[in-house]
Amino acid sequence: MANRSVTARPSVGRVLAWIYLAVIILITLFPFYWILRTALSNNFALHTDASSLLPVDFTWGAFKRALGLASVAEAQAEGGSGASLNTALYLRNSVIYAGVQTALVVFCSATAAYAFSRLRWKGREVVFSVLLCALMVPAIFTLIPNFVTVKNLGLTNTFAGMILPGAFFSAFNIFFLRQFMLGLSTEVEEAATIDGAGPLRVFFRIVLPMCAAPIATLCLLTFINTWNDYFWPLMVTSDESVRPLTLALAVFKQASPNTAVDWAGLMAATLIAAAPMLLLFVVFGRRIVNSIGFTGIK
């Protein structure tokens, strides 16, 4: 008797679930598509067919304006204001700002997490409880005190002024790494201590290598958050030499207040600014999810 292959019909619930996911994905990705569609359009032509789903009068001119490769005449011919971005300079500033702050805050968070999870000292639990309270304080509440401090120290319009206020403390990072360290086996550390290794040597030679995955995740998350930061650089910088790319986008938008906004150029500049972060998410997205799961292991 011949075997007949039976194809199971998908249940109604499964079909509805896939439809729901498809709608969510469409809603999530459509703004990115609209930004790309606008960036590939002629800024003059955009007003003639604003509802078109395809680029209106397709052109790469907006990207040339955003990269500073178009002349004033070429920019104005496509509806641009004539302004351009010094993209290389602003990218350098963003890399310095995000890179240095990420290195400092993750290293300081790792040392603090080690102290809270491995070292025994009086008042440790009380101090950690106070630290957890910092998670409930909105970051915007600290902007004014930090600004006053930076101004009094004469650090406005400097990388140090942008980096230092947030470089040495992150309640979330400390909590994240402490939870992971609590789940690590202490046998190797105890053996190293018996052999004469001190706390610093144990931390650098044993604990840090074992925490490579969550530390890499925190580096990625911190870098992305710092790269996208807007309000703090806006408060402490006005000099082009230290202005990050996110702040430069707003300056580009307001470059010619007497003319219409160069939406195509602004969207092209936004894509250039977002491209590194999107690439990081695509490459390391799975690592983020996996490392967050590690915090529940004990």
Rank of each mutant, 00 (worst) to 15 (best):
V6D: 06
T7Y: 03
A17R: 03
W18P: 01
Y20E: 02
L21K: 12
V23N: 05
L29F: 11
L29S: 06
P31F: 01
Y33A: 12
T38D: 07
H47G: 10
S51I: 04
L53G: 13
D57V: 06
D57P: 15
T59W: 01
Q76W: 00
E78C: 02
G80L: 00
S81T: 15
S94N: 07
V95N: 11
I96W: 11
G99Q: 06
T102P: 15
A103Y: 07
A110I: 00
T111Y: 10
G123F: 10
E125D: 14
S129W: 03
V130C: 12
A134M: 08
V137I: 15
I140K: 05
T142W: 00
P145Q: 01
N146L: 04
L155H: 03
A160I: 12
M162H: 04
L184S: 11
T186H: 03
E187A: 12
A191K: 00
A197T: 01
V202G: 08
I206D: 00
P209E: 04
P209L: 05
A212G: 13
A213F: 00
L218C: 12
L220D: 00
L221P: 04
I224S: 10
T237L: 05
P244Y: 14
L245P: 05
T246H: 06
D262Q: 14
W263E: 01
T270F: 13
A275P: 14
V283I: 15
F284W: 03
I288C: 08
V289F: 08
V289Y: 02
N290C: 03
I292Y: 14
G293W: 00
G296L: 01
